[in-house]
Computed example of a mutant assay.
Amino acid sequence: MAKLELTPIWDKVFPQSDKVEHSKVTFHNRYGIELAADLYKPKGTADGTKLPAIAVSGPFGAVKEQSSGLYAQAMAERGFLTIAFDPSFTGESGGSPRYVASPDINTEDFSAAVDYLSNREDVDPEHIGIIGICGWGGMALNAAANDPRIKATVASTMYDMSRVSANNYFDADDSADARNKLRAQLAAQRTADYAAGDYVRAGGVVDPLPDDAPQFVKDYHAYYKTPRGYHARSLNSNDGWNTTSTLSFINMPLLSYIDEIEAPVLLIHGEKAHSRYFSEDAYKKLEQGINPANKELMIIPGANHTDLYDQVDIIPFDAIDGFFTKYLK
């Protein structure tokens, strides 16, 4: 595995806390891809202490210098050792070609983070949780269904990337005809990409905004395309994913086995979020599963999708802390 080049400076879109120690680390997944992460640890932790740990990633098309790092730092302030990692093929993490998303590999990235945390001397391997934001909320639920080492999971402002890829927003194109047209377009793009020796990218958040842009697109623009959340390595802030990444999500439903998750799950979503139905439907499946008693859906009054990316007066960090304290400490 090639050695990763990690930025030595603080280049996050949020201020650095004086309550935590920050460092950069790397770990690998079972496909041999080296992943880059920011590690946050409560200051003053006594030598020999084994802390409960949390791995964080997301949103879909973001990097660890954005929302996931904010969540990780906030949870470290509350007594957890945390990492915010860049998924495979993105940010400072390895993997080639670049800018590929995969329901399998990106689910694996969470379990690889658990591998790494479980082997740290300052982590209690029996008390590891994960947080997934936006599209990585779906990956987190998928990882929790497959990896019993994950003792508690939070999915914030969650997207089911398989569902939105296959059916479009609000299931508007949920038909075989619509999917076959999309498959044909993407298959043609594969042919063209191979001939060109490169991969066409889908484009990040629309910029400039058209007058008729839906409100949720305006919300994305307000985060990814302004100083509030713009980052040079963020796919959504720039040219987006490889277009053909969509194919694997159409063909692999992410949330098939979440009703078999035994460990606790907390879903958090904004009342006004366009994506709210993803969490509500996931929660219905969790409620019908083998252990509904430790599953919870929290709706944040008045919040939209991106409010839960970075609005610290809206993100329910105290509730997240209480959830992880109950199940990890």
Rank of each mutant, 00 (worst) to 15 (best):
L328I: 11
H305M: 05
K295A: 02
T325V: 07
P292D: 00
D318P: 11
A319P: 04
Q311N: 15
N291A: 14
I290K: 14
D307S: 06
P292Y: 00
A303N: 03
F317Q: 00
N304V: 08
Q288Y: 06
T325R: 14
L297Q: 02
T306S: 07
I315S: 06
T325D: 12
G322D: 10
F317W: 02
P301T: 04
Y327L: 15
M298F: 14
I314P: 10
Y327E: 09
G289L: 04
G322V: 07
D318H: 13
F317G: 00
L328N: 12
F317P: 01
F323M: 08
N294Y: 07
I290M: 06
F317K: 01
D321C: 10
E296N: 13
A293T: 10
V312T: 14
D318K: 15
I320Q: 11
Y327H: 15
I315G: 04
Y327M: 14
I299C: 06
T325F: 09
A319M: 11
N304Y: 05
D321K: 12
D321Y: 09
L308H: 09
Y327V: 08
E287Y: 07
I320C: 11
Q311L: 10
A293S: 14
Y309N: 03
V312A: 10
G302V: 03
N291T: 10
L328S: 14
N304P: 00
D318C: 09
V312E: 14
A303Y: 03
G289Y: 03
I300Y: 00
A303T: 01
T306Y: 09
G302Y: 03
I300F: 00
D318G: 13
A319R: 14
A303D: 02
P316H: 07
Y309D: 00
P316F: 09
Q288C: 06
I299R: 03
K326F: 08
E287V: 09
D313P: 07
I290Y: 02
Y309H: 06
D310T: 05
K326E: 13
E287S: 10
G302E: 04
D307I: 02
P301K: 06
E287D: 12
I290S: 08
I315D: 05
T306M: 12
N304T: 11
I299Q: 02
D313T: 14
I314M: 13
P316Q: 12
D307L: 00
N294W: 05
V312Y: 08
F317A: 01
K326Y: 10
P301M: 05
N294A: 14
I320E: 09
P292Q: 02
Y309E: 02
D307P: 02
D321I: 06
L308S: 06
L328T: 09
I300R: 03
L297F: 06
G322Q: 12
P301C: 03
D318Y: 13
F323A: 07
N304R: 05
I314V: 15
N294I: 11
G289F: 00
H305K: 04
L328P: 13
P292W: 00
L297C: 04
T325A: 11
N291F: 04
L308A: 06
